[in-house]
Deep mutational scan, measured.
Amino acid sequence: MIINNLKLIREKKKISQSELAALLEVSRQTINGIEKNKYNPSLQLALKIAYYLNTPLEDIFQWQ
């Protein structure tokens, strides 16, 4: 199972779901689904999230 800290990191950086979704060219619902662990992002999307949040990938997504 993958645990993610996306919501915590996104809120710490004061970025809304809508703003992050626009940067990543995905829907706000996609961001919401990832934050709620409804599904895991593709590797490409995970890397883009880490890039736009300027945060190491392993700080956002962790195996458990």
Rank of each mutant, 00 (worst) to 15 (best):
residue 48 K to M: 10
residue 16 S to P: 07
residue 48 K to W: 05
residue 2 I to G: 06
residue 44 Q to Y: 09
residue 13 K to L: 11
residue 33 G to F: 10
residue 23 L to S: 13
residue 38 K to W: 12
residue 45 L to V: 07
residue 58 E to T: 09
residue 50 A to N: 01
residue 49 I to K: 00
residue 44 Q to W: 09
residue 8 L to A: 15
residue 21 A to K: 02
residue 41 P to I: 08
residue 40 N to K: 12
residue 2 I to K: 11
residue 50 A to V: 05
residue 26 V to C: 07
residue 25 E to T: 10
residue 11 E to S: 09
residue 8 L to N: 13
residue 44 Q to F: 10
residue 53 L to A: 02
residue 55 T to W: 05
residue 23 L to E: 10
residue 1 M to K: 05
residue 50 A to D: 00
residue 45 L to M: 11
residue 45 L to W: 03
residue 60 I to Q: 00
residue 50 A to T: 04
residue 14 K to R: 14
residue 3 I to Y: 09
residue 22 A to N: 11
residue 42 S to D: 15
residue 19 E to A: 13
residue 58 E to K: 08
residue 6 L to V: 05
residue 40 N to W: 06
residue 23 L to W: 14
residue 53 L to D: 00
residue 27 S to Q: 08
residue 56 P to Q: 12
residue 43 L to Q: 12
residue 22 A to S: 12
residue 31 I to Y: 05
residue 20 L to W: 01
residue 34 I to V: 06
residue 55 T to F: 05
residue 57 L to Y: 06
residue 25 E to H: 15
residue 7 K to L: 09
residue 63 W to S: 05
residue 52 Y to A: 12
residue 52 Y to K: 07
residue 51 Y to F: 14
residue 18 S to L: 14
residue 42 S to I: 04
residue 3 I to E: 08
residue 27 S to L: 03
residue 4 N to P: 03
residue 12 K to M: 13
residue 43 L to M: 14
residue 40 N to V: 11
residue 54 N to A: 12
residue 1 M to C: 06
residue 19 E to P: 02
residue 47 L to H: 14
residue 8 L to T: 14
residue 56 P to A: 08
residue 13 K to N: 13
residue 46 A to V: 05
residue 58 E to W: 08
residue 41 P to T: 04
residue 45 L to Y: 03
residue 57 L to G: 02
residue 4 N to E: 01
residue 24 L to P: 00
residue 24 L to W: 01
residue 13 K to E: 12
residue 50 A to L: 02
residue 39 Y to D: 06
residue 55 T to Q: 07
residue 56 P to R: 10
residue 28 R to W: 15
residue 45 L to Q: 07
residue 4 N to Q: 04
residue 13 K to P: 01
residue 33 G to L: 13
residue 52 Y to R: 06
residue 61 F to E: 01
residue 47 L to R: 14
residue 64 Q to L: 07
residue 22 A to C: 08
residue 50 A to C: 07
residue 16 S to W: 03
residue 10 R to C: 04
residue 35 E to W: 01
residue 48 K to N: 09
residue 13 K to H: 11
residue 62 Q to T: 11
residue 37 N to V: 04
residue 41 P to H: 02
residue 34 I to G: 00
residue 33 G to S: 11
residue 63 W to T: 05
residue 12 K to N: 12
residue 19 E to R: 13
residue 26 V to T: 07
residue 14 K to L: 12
residue 17 Q to K: 10
residue 34 I to E: 00
residue 58 E to M: 09
residue 33 G to T: 08
residue 29 Q to Y: 12
residue 27 S to M: 03
residue 9 I to T: 07
residue 41 P to G: 02
residue 8 L to S: 15
residue 36 K to R: 12
residue 58 E to P: 11
residue 62 Q to P: 05
residue 23 L to N: 13
residue 3 I to W: 07
residue 62 Q to L: 07
residue 30 T to S: 07
residue 54 N to G: 11
residue 51 Y to W: 11
residue 54 N to E: 14
residue 36 K to I: 14
residue 38 K to C: 10
residue 3 I to T: 14
residue 43 L to H: 14
residue 49 I to D: 00
residue 29 Q to P: 11
residue 20 L to I: 05
residue 57 L to F: 06
residue 19 E to C: 07
residue 9 I to F: 11
residue 34 I to M: 05
residue 44 Q to R: 10
residue 24 L to V: 14
residue 52 Y to V: 15
residue 2 I to W: 08
residue 15 I to S: 03
residue 44 Q to V: 12
residue 10 R to S: 02
residue 62 Q to G: 08
residue 48 K to R: 12
residue 37 N to F: 08
residue 20 L to E: 00
residue 38 K to S: 15
residue 30 T to C: 12
residue 52 Y to Q: 12
residue 10 R to M: 07
residue 22 A to K: 11
residue 38 K to T: 13
residue 45 L to R: 02
residue 46 A to C: 07
residue 26 V to A: 04
residue 30 T to Y: 14
residue 9 I to V: 13
residue 24 L to H: 01
residue 41 P to M: 05
residue 38 K to E: 15
residue 20 L to G: 00
residue 10 R to N: 01
residue 18 S to A: 11
residue 33 G to V: 09
residue 17 Q to F: 03
residue 54 N to Q: 14
residue 29 Q to H: 15
residue 21 A to F: 01
residue 24 L to K: 00
residue 2 I to P: 08
residue 31 I to R: 01
residue 32 N to R: 15
residue 21 A to G: 07
residue 46 A to S: 07
residue 50 A to F: 01
residue 26 V to Y: 02
residue 48 K to G: 07
residue 56 P to M: 04
residue 13 K to M: 13
residue 15 I to H: 04
residue 26 V to R: 03
residue 42 S to T: 10
residue 20 L to N: 00
residue 27 S to T: 09
residue 6 L to F: 04
residue 41 P to R: 00
residue 5 N to K: 08
residue 59 D to R: 08
residue 40 N to A: 13
residue 7 K to D: 04
residue 45 L to P: 01
residue 32 N to P: 03
residue 48 K to H: 07
residue 8 L to I: 14
residue 61 F to W: 05
